[in-house]
């Protein structure tokens, strides 16, 4: 059995004490996912000073403020575009983009698919809570049909995004989705994601009891977790299910694990080629 550091040890090592307490509500899942991420960093023995955390706007995006790393808290939806500049300028830095579903998939959807297409070397930890928590519980494009939000008082009528599915179609190197109670799989996935080159994504279904649950008759985190248990289907099982049965369900598991060269490596080769074409280098 592997020695597991206590939450306090992790907290002591990686959090900015002067920024605590966090802004997260009781029962919020962001803290758990942050724990997973820090554990993964710790297990892999990564150098704290060679990691930059990037984020956009929203509850999840406040995370880089609480961890003791270089951090860039940017504008709404644009984190991955900012990250592109950091990574290409200083390829030695590992980039973790900590994002929410509204940030990554609504306003930032375009940067998301294009960063994947380029295979930008970045690990995206995505908190999917079906809602805009910070602005007061408006419906997000990930919300399943019928769910309520302050801007969908009569229930969402739009179709939801499958973020992980979209990432696979756009060509990401590694894509996994878990809910916050799949903590072992979650940590392992983050470790895998951090160890690969190119674009990697780990999406977490994460409870927001205050802004989301309260409006959907699930006021507490345990209720939300039970609901996740009900609506999630492991990939292996899902493969055997007809599409009708999967309506309203969310598939969890590893969806992609491949090794296309990342943008950094491609660009290095590009520079060499340029110099060669100009006759500057053999």
């Amino acid at each position: 059995m592997m020695y597991m550091k206590s939450a306090y040890e992790i907290r002591d090592k990686y959090l900015r004490k002067d920024m605590l307490p966090t802004i997260f509500c009781p029962g919020c899942g962001i803290g758990s996912v942050l724990q997973f991420t820090l554990r993964a960093i710790d297990d892999l023995g990564l150098n704290q000073d060679e990691i930059v955390w990037v984020s956009g706007i929203g509850c999840s995006s406040r995370v880089p403020g609480f961890v003791n790393f270089d951090g860039l808290h940017t504008t709404h939806g644009r984190a991955l575009a900012f990250a592109t500049g950091i990574k290409l300028t200083n390829p030695d830095l590992k980039i973790i983009a900590f994002m929410g579903d509204g940030d990554a998939a609504a306003i930032g959807g375009n940067h998301f698919i294009h960063a994947i297409r380029r295979n930008l070397d970045v690990t995206v930890i995505l908190i999917n809570n079906f809602t805009y928590g910070m602005t007061g519980g408006q419906v997000a494009p990930t919300a399943l049909k019928g769910l309520r939000g302050t801007t969908a008082p009569y229930g969402q009528f739009e179709n939801p995004f499958d973020i992980a599915g979209l990432a696979v179609a756009a060509g990401a190197n590694y894509v996994a989705r878990w809910s916050v109670f799949n903590y072992l799989q979650g940590i392992n996935s983050i470790k895998k994601a951090l160890s690969k080159e190119g674009f990697t994504l780990v999406e977490f279904l994460s409870p927001c009891p205050i802004s989301f649950g309260r409006r959907n008759r699930m006021k507490t985190a345990p209720e939300l977790l039970r609901w996740y248990q009900k609506i999630t289907v492991p990939l292996a099982k899902a493969k055997k299910m007809p599409p009708e049965e999967l309506e309203g369900k969310i598939v969890i598991g590893e969806f992609a694990d491949r090794d296309r060269p990342g943008l950094v490596r491609e660009y290095e080769a590009y520079k060499k080629r340029a110099k060669k074409m100009m006759g500057w280098e053999e």
Binding site: H76, G102, Y132, M134, T135, G136, Q138, T150, T151, P153
Partner: peptide, 10 residues
């Protein structure tokens, strides 16, 4: 959604 205008949308 954006603070402080969200109540108009709501």
């Amino acid at each position: 959604p954006i603070t402080p205008s969200s109540e108009i949308a709501e």
